[in-house]
């Protein structure tokens, strides 16, 4: 990262004689950064940053969609967390709603136990793909593929797309 500065090598390479040197005797001194003051006083930090609660932030892009996790921030309470979350996470793009949740209120499974989510036995019976190869034999007694379910799903999908198209334009 950025040249990994804390990972320096040992030997130094030859410098080029035509490298510019940065010893110009003038310097741009912006009026608002108080550089002169900072140079003179150099106060030393008394309290470098907050030790506020961390809030996890969830954003809903549009009505009808799920909220999704976008990040987290430090805030003294939930109301300020919401005020800050708006500009920290929703200053670009769509957003209609935000949630903030104190991080200590989130209960999570342990990654070490993530094997509990693995499906070792045959669970095809709960997937649509587990019912492929239905034939109309049983109904009509002759070999013909039964595409009733696919037909229903296709119609539903067509409707969904059409309504999306109407809502969002082409």
């Amino acid at each position: 990262m950025y040249g990994d500065p804390a990972d320096p090598g040992s030997e130094a390479l030859e410098a080029r004689p035509d490298m510019p040197s940065y010893t110009r005797d003038w310097r741009f001194d912006p009026y608002h950064q108080g550089l002169g003051f900072a140079r003179e006083h150099d106060p030393g930090a008394r309290h470098a940053d907050t030790e506020w609660t961390v809030y996890e932030v969830f954003q809903q892009d549009r009505r009808g969609e799920h909220h999704h996790h976008v990040g987290s921030l430090h805030a003294p309470d939930a109301e300020i967390a919401l005020v800050l979350a708006k500009e920290n996470f929703a200053r670009r793009g769509n957003c209609v709603n935000l949630w903030v949740v104190p991080v200590h209120c989130i209960h999570a499974t342990d990654y070490a136990d993530s094997d509990v989510f693995q499906h070792t036995t045959d669970r095809m019976y709960r997937e649509p793909g587990g019912f492929q190869g239905l034939r109309k034999d049983k109904i009509h007694g002759h070999a013909q593929r039964d595409d009733h379910v696919e037909g229903v799903l296709t119609t539903a999908e067509t409707e969904l797309n059409a309504s999306r198209h109407r809502r969002e334009g082409p």
């Binding site: 805030a75 800050l84 500009e87």
Partner: peptide, 14 residues
């Protein structure tokens, strides 16, 4: 870039 807290710096810049 000079705000009192990172998060507030961002909000005020907006």
């Amino acid at each position: 870039g000079l705000g009192p807290i990172l998060e507030e710096d961002i909000a005020f810049s907006s």
